[in-house]
């Protein structure tokens, strides 16, 4: 039903209804932001990318092919825009240093925070083409077919990259001590 809603919103947008586009923004700004964030590891850059993605989507709405799901098309723009920005930038440091009070009562919270930081580091250690398949599969629950459409690669290549990415991730987590 959501797919039908997306398509009818797109049709309304094409007729000049900006409120319809605003609904699409509300629906997809969080996943688009998170794709960019996981690729770039910087909240400001991710926000800039998200804005660029929706603007590109709006300007190219007439070229959206209704045979594909709208979010697949949108995520494709998000991935490509993120990869472009990544090529232009060096790897950014960790997403802001989390200031946590040095209090023994929050020891578990610190440990959890450090574990998440190590996981994020491990994701960032992956080359972009492997990082993106982990992000789309694990954080956005994309199917292999959807990933194939978003990344413009055969499904066979998606599976192969996912397998390799998981191996790399495993090695990175073992190296950081998160896994023994």
């Amino acid at each position: 039903m959501k797919e039908a809603d997306d398509k009818s919103l797109v049709q309304d947008c094409l007729k000049g209804n900006l409120q319809a586009f605003e609904l699409l923004v509300e629906r997809y700004q969080k996943p688009v932001f998170n794709i960019a964030l996981r690729m770039l590891n910087n909240a400001d850059d991710a926000a800039d990318v998200a804005q660029t993605v929706f603007l590109k989507a709006y300007e190219n709405l007439t070229s959206y092919n209704e045979q594909f799901r709208f979010f697949s098309w949108l995520y494709k723009i998000a991935v490509n825009t993120s990869l472009t920005v990544l090529e232009q930038k060096k790897r950014i440091d960790l997403l802001g240093d989390t200031e946590v009070a040095q209090d023994s009562s929050v020891g578990e919270a610190i440990e959890a925070s450090e574990r998440v930081e190590k996981l994020e580091d491990a994701i960032l250690d992956l080359r972009p083409e492997y990082r993106v398949v982990i992000i789309l599969r694990h954080f956005h629950d994309m199917s292999y077919e959807e990933m194939s459409q978003i990344l413009d690669i055969p499904e066979k290549t998606v599976k192969s990259r996912l397998y390799t990415a998981r191996q790399m991730l495993k090695d990175s987590l073992m190296k950081s001590g998160l896994m023994d």
């Binding site: 969080k30 998440v116 996981l119 991730l169 998160l178």
Partner: peptide, 18 residues
């Protein structure tokens, strides 16, 4: 390794983004 990723949660975008 895959299970470990479940600890990484989605982040809310900044309130000004929309």
């Amino acid at each position: 390794a895959s299970d470990a990723l479940k600890h990484v949660e989605a982040v809310e975008p900044p309130s000004y983004l929309k």
